[in-house]
Amino acid sequence: MVTRARLKSILTGLALYTMAAAIVGYFGINAYTGKYGLNARQELDQEIIALTSELAQLKRERTRSEQRVSLLRSQKLDPDMLDERARFQLDYANPHDLVRMNPTN
């Protein structure tokens, strides 16, 4: 009887330690691979870098577009820009322009 009680207490302690280790392991794995874990943080940092560079490119493009639009404003109308836009939209060419046709296959 004494050995059975001792065996039961050892197995109970071993079961508790095993359950505690499993719980700690579960939370440890989730801390590394979970939705808000270390891997997710690295992926978010890479995405932040990519989106930041895309934002900088879009800001440069917007600045160029705003500059072109400002040349078409009525306060300071640039005749060359107006002529370019009119020819582009109407598909016209000046008789003094050199036009090169690209053959399409």
Rank of each mutant, 00 (worst) to 15 (best):
90 L>A: 02
73 R>Y: 03
23 I>P: 01
20 A>H: 04
48 I>A: 14
95 P>M: 02
85 R>E: 06
16 L>Y: 01
45 D>Y: 02
28 G>Y: 02
38 L>I: 09
94 N>F: 00
78 D>R: 05
97 D>N: 05
42 Q>M: 12
63 T>M: 14
102 N>Q: 13
25 G>A: 09
36 Y>I: 14
45 D>R: 00
30 N>K: 14
29 I>A: 15
86 A>E: 05
35 K>G: 05
50 A>T: 02
78 D>I: 01
91 D>A: 04
46 Q>G: 07
28 G>S: 03
6 R>A: 07
3 T>W: 08
70 S>V: 04
29 I>R: 14
78 D>C: 06
42 Q>S: 10
84 E>G: 04
5 A>V: 06
95 P>A: 12
65 S>N: 08
90 L>T: 03
67 Q>D: 11
72 L>G: 02
103 P>M: 05
1 M>Q: 04
5 A>W: 04
73 R>N: 14
24 V>D: 00
92 Y>V: 00
26 Y>K: 11
2 V>W: 14
77 L>Y: 10
80 D>F: 00
15 A>D: 10
8 K>G: 06
60 R>L: 12
55 L>V: 15
33 T>H: 10
43 E>K: 04
1 M>A: 13
53 S>T: 12
42 Q>V: 14
86 A>M: 11
82 L>S: 15
53 S>I: 15
95 P>T: 02
98 L>V: 15
10 I>N: 07
55 L>H: 14
17 Y>D: 11
